[in-house]
Simulated scan of single mutants.
Amino acid sequence: MAYRAKYGPLSMQIRSEWYAAHQMFHLNTINGGKAELEDFLVFSGSPGEEEEASFDDVLGYLQANTTSGQE
C-alpha cells in the first residue's frame, strides 16, 4: 500500500489516466485555473478511492461462479 500511495495505481489504464490528469491539473494551475485534480480524473476518481477486495470476497465470488454452472 505504501508503494501505491507514493507512486500511484498499479493498473496501466488507471495509471495512464492518472498521469494525464496530473499533467492537465498542473497546466490548469500554471495558467491560473481553480480546478481540482479530481476534475480531470474522468473515469476513476482519485486513486485512493479504489475499493479493496478481501480474500473472503474473492473466494466467495469464485465459489459462486463454479457452483452456478453445475446443475
Score class of each variant (00 low, 15 high):
G45M: 03
K6Q: 14
Y3I: 04
A64I: 02
F25E: 01
A21Y: 07
S11T: 01
G33D: 09
M1L: 05
V42L: 03
N28D: 01
W18T: 06
H22V: 01
E52K: 15
A53H: 04
I14H: 13
Q70P: 02
M12R: 14
E38N: 15
F55V: 15
G8I: 02
Y61F: 14
L37F: 10
F43Q: 02
S44L: 00
S68D: 11
Q23H: 08
L41F: 00
V42Q: 02
S54D: 12
D57Q: 08
A53E: 06
N31I: 06
K34H: 14
Y3N: 06
G8R: 00
V58M: 10
R4A: 13
F25G: 04
M24Q: 13
P47M: 07
E71A: 06
G45D: 04
G60T: 04
H26V: 07
Q13H: 14
Q13D: 15
Y19C: 09
V42T: 10
S68L: 13
T66P: 05
G45Q: 06
F25N: 06
K34T: 06
N65I: 11
E38Y: 10
Q23E: 14
S54M: 12
T67I: 12
L27V: 10
L37V: 05
W18D: 13
A35R: 08
L62D: 05
S16G: 09
E71W: 01
L37C: 06
S11C: 12
Q13I: 04
E49L: 07
G33N: 07
R4E: 12
D57P: 04
T29E: 15
E50A: 13
S68K: 11
L37H: 03
G33A: 09
E52C: 08
P47A: 08
L27P: 04
P47I: 03
S11Q: 07
V42H: 00
E50N: 09
A5D: 11
Y7V: 06
